[in-house]
């Protein structure tokens, strides 16, 4: 075992696919005409008593179950930190709270909406669910929220501050917020893909276990519109991983059916000379600010299974071996993130 390596020990998801299951890898639910698809929630009564369910809003129930399931599957009993990426936090409660202010004034506001309307409520609830009294932080950086959370956890483990962490992405997509994004031309409208929600997370640590899915060899984030700067970022990620671009077997992208978004991927991948088979997560899980958590999840599963998970494919190229996967996410072609996962 390489003592300086960081592993993804387990993953758990609740999504627009069958929740808490890997059935989507062989039998995915296909969404063709929908513009907005909400998560398929499991019956939380099977997992929690009624008072816990009613005390926590939708995204918080998801956070509790996903985090506890991931920990259970990880062969670890405790994590040292919680790292949450969320572009919108508990946006449904935030909206309800603001609507109350608008329509009923500030005098009779519901305490529950107030308490559950902050972005970092999700991470706090996860801390309680995992009995983790250590580091707890939330990153709200729109399309690179999850990557930012992962970078923090990665660096803290790498520098020896902690040994393990739960890293996750959670976002609700309310009808109101979707309509704003649609009007702005980011989702819906002429886009082929659909908007979704995100609720997934992984346990990462410096401990290799039988359940470990893969190794994380680099996480790099940058803000730039210059192609040469993007290339520099990629080269840093490759250097961290002791790889060249020719060693990359698959690239997981955030191609989501929005013409402007996808065109930037095409141009940047061409410039970066990335010609291997492309994968995508948005055609299965939908687009949301922290939706790339499903990209990391899908890539990690490909490495664990040593095969391309067919529903993730977005072109006809093949790959002889699956040992190194590059995950490239850009947000409006300004924020760029590269993650490299390797077989362990």
């Amino acid at each position: 075992m390489d003592n300086n390596s960081i592993y993804i020990n387990s993953f758990s998801q609740i999504s627009v696919q069958e929740p808490l299951s890997e059935n989507w890898t062989t039998n995915p639910i296909i969404y063709q005409n929908e513009k907005l698809v909400k998560i398929k929630d499991p019956d939380y009564k099977e997992y929690y008593p009624a008072n816990i369910i009613r005390r926590n809003g939708k995204v918080l129930r998801r956070a509790m179950l996903v985090s506890q399931t991931a920990l259970k599957n990880s062969e670890l009993t405790q994590v040292d930190g919680v790292f949450t990426g969320s572009g919108l936090g508990c946006v449904e409660n935030t909206e309800a709270f603001l609507q109350q202010i608008v329509y009923e004034g500030e005098e009779f506001l519901k305490p529950t909406y107030f308490m559950q309307s902050t972005h970092n409520t999700i991470s706090s609830v996860i801390g309680i669910a995992l009995n983790c009294k250590g580091y707890n932080s939330t990153y709200c950086h729109k399309g690179i929220s999850f990557e930012s959370a992962l970078l923090d956890a990665y660096l803290q483990i790498k520098s020896g501050k902690i040994n393990s962490g739960f890293v996750c992405g959670f976002d609700e997509m309310s009808n109101t917020y979707f309509s704003i994004l649609e009007r702005a031309g980011y989702l819906g409208g002429k886009s082929i893909g659909f908007a979704g929600e995100s609720s997934a997370g992984c346990i990462i640590s410096n401990k290799l276990t039988n359940n470990s899915l893969c190794k994380i060899s680099s996480v790099r984030i940058g803000y730039t519109q210059k192609p040469e700067e993007i290339e520099k970022l990629l080269n840093q990620a490759l250097y961290d991983s002791n790889l060249t671009i020719n060693n990359i077997d698959l690239v997981m992208t955030g191609i989501n059916g929005n013409p402007e978004n996808d065109e930037a991927y095409t141009k940047n991948l061409e410039y970066l000379n990335i010609r291997c088979a492309k994968l995508g997560f948005a055609q299965l899980f939908g687009e949301s600010y922290s939706g790339s958590v499903y990209g990391v999840y899908g890539s990690a599963l490909c490495l664990k299974k040593s095969q391309v998970i067919t529903p993730l494919k977005i072109d006809n190229k093949t790959s002889e071996k699956i040992e190194n996967i590059l995950i490239y996410r850009h947000f409006r072609n300004k924020d760029h993130a590269f993650i490299i996962l390797q077989k362990c």
Partner: peptide, 17 residues
Amino acid sequence: LGLDSIDALELIVLMEK
């Protein structure tokens, strides 16, 4: 009903509203 302190806050708001 097994209500808790947060419910008490909700009930106080309800009474006033």
